[in-house]
Design a protein around this nucleic acid. Structure first.
Length: 359
DNA sequence: CGATTTTGACCTGCGC
DNA sequence: GCGCAGGTCAAAATCG
């Protein structure tokens, strides 16, 4: 796993803290489980209490205020997101109309790599349905029925230029069934089927980007009809109980590109704007999050983190926002001298046992 | 030994 | 009709 998938929690702490006796008393409660990175704020609140109940109260007030502000920010962002999503859907339907009017009844046309796959395939799949011969419809009934609502998305994953393996780890189980050298790309294209469930119709194609050989482009077709075999990494903030409760589970989340978001990505490559969030036009829960300087190769550990399109049971819009939120919180916490002092005290007392992520 | 990968052959659609 | 290109199949090879 790429270490960039994790929030940087390095605090530059000294392991020789100047904690007070009060802090030690507070930390002598043997019933408490070991503190993890995900409950750092709890450790902070506990240790800050070492300075006295007044300090603890102030700290709690401050955290409550911060929590309130973050909640308000979340509300505003959700509203903005909904408005933007509605706009994207509107644009998508307009695009589909244009394609339909142009009568692009080409049964198969090599989809360009510049991010027009979804609309083209959606438009052609419906027309191709009526043009298959009886033999073909006999041979591919399942495929056609699934193509009607075929969902196509693209995932970009940074890779080493010299790495010839066409592997995109997304948590699912894939069986490779073919590899082809395509005309417009010196890198071969690998074909995979989802092998986690025998009836799962999802396929993916993996090929290095012709423009950026350090980017692997995986094109997913269809939707999984089963649960994700590995739980994705989700950072959950329980706002009802304040920012003290942050829990984590596991996964890596690649960048999902579909038609619209890849256009946004293309635009971003040329504009070098700050952190950008792009939305999917073809999915209900796609979203993509890019770090600044995310063009190929330069900062692979920062390059791409976004929603996986194939985890229908997870709301990745919220997850990505939460990741961003947690990064901000971690950043603000690490700048807080009270917090670092308190955390150092907690570590020295042997109560802080962060989990080591598996890469 | 079962699962997965490799790879050449085959199928299908499209353009000329 | 023919050739090209993308996609799939399936037997052989490889891996754990």
């Amino acid at each position: 796993m790429d270490s960039s998938k994790w929030v940087n929690t390095s605090l530059g702490l000294s392991l020789v803290p100047n904690h007070s006796p009060h802090a030690m008393e507070l930390m002598e409660d043997e019933d408490q489980p070991p503190v993890s990175t995900s409950s750092m704020t709890a450790a902070a609140a506990t240790a800050v209490g070492a300075g006295g109940s007044v300090l603890l109260g102030e700290e709690l007030n401050r955290i409550s205020l911060e929590n309130k502000k973050l909640t308000e920010m979340l509300t505003v962002l959700c509203q903005n997101y909904n408005a933007l999503e509605a706009h994207v859907k509107e644009l998508a339907s307009e695009n589909e109309l244009i394609l339909a009017n142009n009568c692009l009844i080409k049964k198969r046309k090599a989809p360009p790599l510049d991010g027009t796959i979804g609309f083209t395939r959606n438009a052609t799949s419906t027309t191709a349905e009526t043009s298959f011969s009886d033999e073909e419809s006999y041979k591919r009934p399942l495929e056609m029925s699934s193509n009607i609502n075929l969902k196509i998305s693209r995932v970009c994953v940074p890779t080493d230029v010299s790495d010839t393996r066409l592997i995109v780890k997304d948590g699912y189980q894939w069986r490779k069934y073919g590899q082809k050298v395509t005309r417009d790309n010196p890198s071969p294209r690998a074909y995979y089927k989802c092998s986690f469930a025998p009836t799962c119709p999802v396929k993916k194609k993996v090929q290095k980007s012709a423009e950026n050989p350090c980017l692997l482009v995986a094109t997913y077709e269809g939707e999984h009809n089963h649960n994700h075999p590995a739980q994705p990494q989700v950072i959950t903030i329980d706002h009802r109980q304040g920012p003290n409760l942050i829990t984590t589970t596991t996964t890596s989340i690649p960048l999902v590109l579909d038609d619209h978001s890849s256009n946004i990505l293309a635009h971003k490559r040329s504009s070098s704007s700050p952190t950008t969030m792009s939305m999917s036009s073809s999915s209900d829960h796609n979203s993509s999050l890019m770090e600044p300087g995310s063009s190929c190769g330069h900062k692979p550990n920062q390059v791409i983190e976004a929603a996986a399109d194939h985890h229908p049971q997870y709301d990745h819009k919220a997850t990505n926002f939460q990741q961003l939120l947690v990064q901000q919180m971690a950043s603000s916490l690490t700048k807080d001298p009270n917090f670092t002092t308190a955390l150092a005290a907690a570590i020295a007392a042997g109560r802080f046992n962060p989990p080591i992520p598996k890469w």
